[in-house]
């Protein structure tokens, strides 16, 4: 196994887990959003170590940048900075323990880290790696798959983003006009 990469990846994952648990424990929403920024940065670091440079690029620009700022601006717009105590934490803990145990049991059948013989690497990915250089003519295989072999997926993605943008505009465009009259809030 590729020990250097694996160790760096493991350390970053431990940081990631610590950050997630800290987010769960914090009552202050603002601090939670800040730690979520760290969480995004760390996950992008993990992506770089696991060779997914394009994913890390997107996560940097979109996850760490936009998502954190969206959360902060929501906190600013609602003016709520603290959350109250968790509801029914014991029931949630029980649910989490049961589901987590089942998932851990499921992982024992997964291929080991970095296994080149894993089923995921046997089918179409091999063809992409060997042929896309000749067929598409650009070195970045991820881009050729995204824009050419699976171009319709990307079209669907754009449709989803467009719908979400329209939805946000519909939800927030009207509320600004209504807020000019704070008296009828009752």
């Amino acid at each position: 196994m590729d020990i250097g990469s694996f160790l760096i990846n493991a350390i970053l994952l431990v940081f990631l887990a610590a950050t997630a648990i800290a987010v769960a424990r914090l009552q202050n929403l603002f601090a939670g959003a800040m730690l979520f920024g760290i969480y995004s940065l760390l996950s992008a670091g993990v992506f770089v170590v696991l060779d997914a440079v394009d994913v890390a690029f997107t996560e940097a620009a979109v996850g760490a940048g936009i998502a954190t700022i969206l959360m902060l601006s929501t906190i600013a717009l609602t003016g709520i900075k603290h959350e109250s105590i968790p509801i029914r934490p014991l029931r949630s803990l029980l649910l989490v323990a049961v589901v987590g145990a089942a998932l851990i049991y499921g992982t024992f059948d997964m291929p080991r880290f970095g296994d080149a013989e894993a089923p995921a690497h046997q089918h179409v990915a091999l063809r992409y790696l060997q042929q896309s250089g000749d067929e598409i003519g650009i070195p970045n295989v991820v881009t050729s798959v995204l824009a050419s072999y699976r171009g319709y997926d990307t079209l669907g993605e754009v449709a989803v983003i467009f719908t979400a943008g329209i939805g946000v505009l519909c939800l927030l465009g009207g509320s600004r006009r209504r807020r000019t009259d704070p008296a009828d809030k009752s």
Partner: peptide, 27 residues
Amino acid sequence: LDIALVYALINFIGTIAVLKFFEYGDL
């Protein structure tokens, strides 16, 4: 290294946005 470059940019913009939020209460 482009990723590192994007990170340097995002980090700075993020910090300034957060601080604006804190100085003026919103962004």
